[in-house]
């Protein structure tokens, strides 16, 4: 296979056209506040998991909005559901419920 010593590179472009927005629709239908995030990062700043792992709940929101769902199941398991993010969110997003909805959505929609 490796006859040439090189291969076409995998594109890093976020392909908006082929975006999987099934999960996003599911989350917004069940927790509408999810769509109001303005990426201020208060949640991540206060996150117990984010202090010790690369879990980043703010980035998770953006990734889901971009339909980037690879490895999302592993990512979501890092959340400890402590709810501190919920206390600081200036948009009043029910972040803890959003995480629970994402967990359900992954199962219901059969996302790996």
């Amino acid at each position: 296979m490796n006859k040439f010593g090189f291969a076409p590179a995998k594109s890093r472009v976020i392909e908006y056209d082929s975006m999987h927005n099934q999960l996003l629709d599911y989350i917004i239908a069940n927790e509408p506040s999810f769509s109001t995030c303005m990426s201020c990062g208060s949640c991540t700043a206060t996150c117990s998991a984010g202090n010790l792992t690369d879990f980043n709940i703010r980035r998770l929101n953006i990734q889901i909005r971009h339909g980037e769902l690879d490895g999302i199941r592993q990512e979501i398991d890092k959340c400890m559901l402590c709810g501190k993010c919920l206390l600081v969110c200036p948009r009043g997003i029910n972040t803890r419920n959003a995480i629970m909805i994402i967990k359900k959505g992954i199962v219901n929609l059969g996302i790996e």
Partner: peptide, 9 residues
């Protein structure tokens, strides 16, 4: 805070 542009607390 989170330095959101480097995505780290």
């Amino acid at each position: 805070a989170e330095d959101t542009l480097s995505a780290r607390p």
